[in-house]
């Protein structure tokens, strides 16, 4: 994973990659429009660029402003990324049940899911799943579901062994306002007992 994600353990240490000598890290994030899927990808990508990596991010969405389907596919690598398509995700973040269902098979690594949105998970690989109650926490602590993506980003940062300080700096650079609340939301995800235990 060459520094972007930890080489073993955590989310980065997946097994069974079909392309040998894989130096690239693939991250797939999907949910509904308005949940901050693209923003989360943008911060992850910016953080990796600041650390000297090459990054691609494909974003696809329906024509709706809110409520439609959204997907961000990130590839992070020390070298130029040829294919920007995520075919074997090291990490899959599912913000909605349809997204979980649609893209689960593209993931070989860990699945971070919001249990309020994804009520049923596949029984075949429970050890690959990490529940991050981002929506519930956003409502309880910030009285606003919009902070769910930053909670998820904090959890992902810890699980993937990425540089937390750099991630916070990237967030501040990418998001123009409400830095303090967003930092608190990242911290909420980063310090979730379940996440700490799994990292």
């Amino acid at each position: 994973m060459a520094g972007a994600l930890r080489a073993s353990g955590g989310v980065g240490g997946h097994v069974g990659a079909p392309h040998e000598n894989k130096t690239r890290t693939e991250i797939l994030i999907s949910g509904f429009g308005g949940q901050g899927v693209v923003r989360m990808g943008q911060i992850l990508g910016m953080c990796a660029i600041k650390q000297g990596h090459r990054v691609t991010m494909l974003k696809s969405h329906g024509t709706e402003t809110r409520g439609g389907y959204v997907r961000a596919q990130l590839v992070i690598s020390p070298d130029y990324v040829d294919s920007p398509v995520v075919e074997n995700a090291d990490v899959f973040v599912a913000f909605s049940a349809p997204a979980y269902k649609k893209f689960f098979d593209l993931c070989r690594g860990h699945v971070l899911y919001d249990p309020e949105m994804v009520e049923q998970i596949r029984p075949d690989a429970p050890e690959r799943h990490v529940a991050v109650p981002a929506t519930q926490l956003a409502k309880e602590r910030f009285n606003n579901v919009l902070f769910a993506n930053m909670i998820m980003l904090g959890a992902l940062t810890r699980l993937a062994g990425m540089d937390y300080t750099a991630m916070k700096a990237a967030m501040v650079e990418v998001i123009p306002r409400f830095h303090e609340q967003n930092l608190n939301a990242m911290e909420a995800g980063y310090t979730l007992p379940d996440v700490v235990a799994r990292s």
């Binding site: 990808g41 943008q42 990508g45 660029i49 990596h53 090459r54 990054v55 691609t56 991010m57 494909l58 974003k59 990324v81 920007p84």
Partner: peptide, 9 residues
């Protein structure tokens, strides 16, 4: 569409 919409370093 991909090259136009894709984000990259």
């Amino acid at each position: 569409q991909v090259i136009s919409d894709m984000w990259e370093d």
